[in-house]
C-alpha cells in the first residue's frame, strides 16, 4: 500500500538548507542565463516516475520576460526539494509535482524571494508544507487539521490577499480616487512648460 503520510517537515526543511548554490545560477530567459529550467524539470519528472513533458507542458518553464527570474529560481528550489529520495523512490508524484511547479509557484514567487525558501526558517517550512499539500501527503506525525493550521499561519499568498482586502487599504484607495477626481475638476498649479 502506498504512503498517505509523507516525510517529516524537519527532513524537508533540512534538505532545503542544503540546496546547492548551482540551483541559484541565472536561469535562461530570452536566450540569456546558464540554467535551463525546462531541462531540470524534465529530468525531475522522469525521476519521479513520469514521462517527459510534451507539447505546451514542455514549454511551461521557457520564459522570455526578465521578471520571470524569481519564479524560475523558485521552481529550481522546489525541484531540489522534490528530488528528495522519498518522492523519487515512490515513483508516483510526477503529475502532482509538475502541476505544483507549473500552477502554484507563480503566486508565491511574486511575494517571496527564492533565496528565502532556503535561508529563512518560516519560508522553508512554508515551501515544504506547500509541497506536501500539493502531493496530497501529510507531514509525518501530524494530523490533517494541524497541517492545515500550520500552513495557514505561514501562507504568504493568503496573507497578501488578506492585506489587499483589508478595509484600510480599500478606504485609502477610495480617498485617493475621490481626491483625484475632485482635483481634476479644480485647477492644478502652473508649470514652466508642457510636461515640465
Amino acid at each position: 500500500m502506498k504512503h498517505t503520510n509523507g516525510p517529516s517537515i524537519d527532513r524537508l526543511t533540512r534538505r532545503l538548507t542544503e540546496c546547492p548554490a548551482d540551483f541559484f545560477r541565472e536561469p535562461v530567459i530570452a536566450g540569456r542565463g546558464i540554467v535551463h529550467v525546462p531541462a531540470v524539470v524534465n529530468d525531475l519528472i522522469v525521476d519521479l516516475g513520469g514521462a517527459p513533458p510534451r507539447g505546451t507542458d514542455a514549454l511551461a518553464f521557457k520564459r522570455s520576460s526578465a521578471d520571470s527570474r524569481n519564479l524560475l529560481q523558485t521552481v529550481m528550489v522546489a525541484a531540489w526539494l522534490l528530488g528528495d529520495e522519498f518522492f523519487v523512490e515512490e515513483k508516483r508524484f510526477a503529475t502532482p509535482a509538475f502541476n505544483w511547479l507549473n500552477n502554484e509557484l507563480a503566486a508565491v514567487s511574486k511575494l517571496v524571494s527564492a533565496e528565502l525558501f532556503v535561508s529563512d526558517p518560516d519560508r522553508r517550512e512554508e515551501l515544504a508544507r506547500m509541497c506536501l499539500k500539493a502531493l496530497r501527503l501529510l507531514p509525518e506525525g501530524e494530523t490533517k487539521e494541524h497541517a492545515e493550521d500550520r500552513l495557514g499561519a505561514l501562507d504568504s499568498v493568503a496573507r497578501d490577499k488578506l492585506a489587499k482586502e483589508t478595509a484600510k487599504e480599500e478606504e485609502r484607495a477610495r480617498k485617493l480616487r475621490e481626491a483625484m477626481a475632485a482635483k481634476e475638476a479644480a485647477e492644478s498649479a502652473a508649470k514652466a512648460g508642457r510636461e515640465w
Binding site: 526578465a66 527570474r69 527564492a114
Partner: peptide
C-alpha cells in the same frame, strides 16, 4: 507602496536582482 511590494518579493536583493524586477 503596494506597487513596490508587488514587484519586490520578500527577501529580494534589490541590487543583485535588479534586472528581474517587473517594470
Amino acid at each position: 507602496s503596494r506597487a513596490f511590494r508587488d514587484r519586490l518579493p520578500e527577501g529580494i536583493d534589490i541590487a543583485r536582482e535588479w534586472a528581474g524586477i517587473s517594470p
